[in-house]
């Protein structure tokens, strides 16, 4: 006891190999991160190139080749946007809610999208699908979703309840309510109307219209930049409310700000291609495993690349093997779910 008390302050003066506190503490973890990053980048580029060049009837490099590739590049751009939105939004959402088994899509974004689409077909018939397409309709849908989310966050986080768990619960219940209304309307549709509607309700890259991009891209850039720029604060927020406040950050303000940008990203992604319930969750979980660090500056890029690889990979398989191009949600849920299970079972932790 006595020697412990009288011991000098810094007993281990002997030089240590490395005493840094960085996000990737060991040389090993640094190497591992950049190898993973490199592999993902390579995969992303090969899937991207594969989508442009595979089954392209014109020889590589000719004018005709680029003409066709250009047309295909549109869906590639959509995928990049969706991957970015889902990845950044889900990681940020899980951080501020301190919960790694939920995704922002349960906050009613998708139910609202489904309700709008179903309502259009229900009230306007088969022509209704085109009534909710177009730049203005797209912008209105995004605005509606962001508004719904902000009302929900604002009301629930600033009120007396001030509780994230209650906010999530109410979000889920609202989502379920909207979902039931949609299901009810779907039951009353004619088979042909239902068929048209179903095509819109699968998450599909071909739902995206290039004319939406002038609105979608600036919104995504704005919200994405804001979230990535707050990476260091998000690292702290991940430690929970008490620790965050102790370290001098306004916890509620930070959470509200983050949720606002998350709702923009989710709204754009959902309005662009439709529901992608599982993608964000899958991508975020895989990214935590692959990046293996707490630092959002490292998690975000890996999550984005993972998202793009998953999306482009699924699209590639759907298009060139099953000839069902566009409908990627199905294969993402099947293959992604299995990958996720294997990962968790092997590592034994989230």
């Amino acid at each position: 006891m006595a020697n412990l008390l009288t011991r000098p302050l810094a007993p281990t003066a002997s030089p240590r190999i490395h005493r840094g506190s960085g996000a990737l503490p060991h040389g090993r973890s640094r190497t591992r991160y950049w190898v993973v990053f490199g592999i993902l980048l390579l995969l992303a580029m090969s899937f991207g190139f594969g989508l442009l060049a595979w089954d392209n009837p014109m020889p590589l490099g000719t004018e005709g080749f680029w003409l066709i590739a250009n047309m295909r590049a549109n869906s590639l751009l959509t995928m990049a946007i969706v991957a970015f939105c889902q990845a950044v939004a889900t990681v940020s959402f899980q951080t501020v809610t301190n919960n790694r088994i939920i995704t922002p899509s349960i906050m009613g974004f998708e139910s609202l999208y489904i309700a709008v689409q179903t309502g259009a077909v229900f009230f306007l018939g088969a022509a209704g699908v085109s009534a909710v397409q177009g730049l203005w309709q797209f912008s209105a849908q995004v605005a509606l979703m962001v508004l719904l989310a902000c009302l929900l966050y604002g009301w629930l986080l600033s009120g007396k309840l001030g509780n994230i768990q209650i906010m999530l619960l109410i979000g889920i219940i609202l989502g379920a309510g909207l979902g039931s209304i949609s299901t009810f309307m779907q039951r009353l549709l004619t088979p042909s109307e239902f068929d048209i509607l179903t095509a819109r309700l699968f998450g599909s890259m071909s739902n995206a219209d290039m004319s939406y991009m002038p609105v979608a891209i600036p919104l995504v850039v704005l919200a994405g930049t804001a979230l990535i720029a707050s990476s260091k604060r998000l690292n702290v927020v991940a430690l929970g409310r008490d620790t965050t406040m102790n370290l001098g950050i306004n916890h509620r303000g930070e959470v509200m700000r983050t949720l606002f940008f998350v709702s923009i990203l989710m709204a754009v992604s959902t309005a662009l291609v439709g529901p992608m319930t599982f993608l964000g969750f899958l991508v975020a979980t895989l990214a935590y495993q692959l990046a293996d660090t707490y630092d959002h500056r490292y998690i975000f890029p890996v999550a984005f690349l993972t998202g793009f690889v998953v999306l482009a990979g699924a699209y590639f398989v759907m298009k060139n093997i099953f000839y069902a191009q566009g409908v990627v949600g199905i294969i993402i849920e099947a293959v992604g779910g299995i990958t996720f299970l294997i990962f968790i079972l092997r590592k034994g932790r989230l």
Binding site: Q94, R100, L239, T243, Y294
Partner: peptide, 15 residues
């Protein structure tokens, strides 16, 4: 204190 993120002792102290 329960953190969802996985931190080393040194990273935690660094916060």
């Amino acid at each position: 204190n329960h953190f969802v993120t996985r931190l080393t002792v040194r990273q935690l102290v660094g916060f």
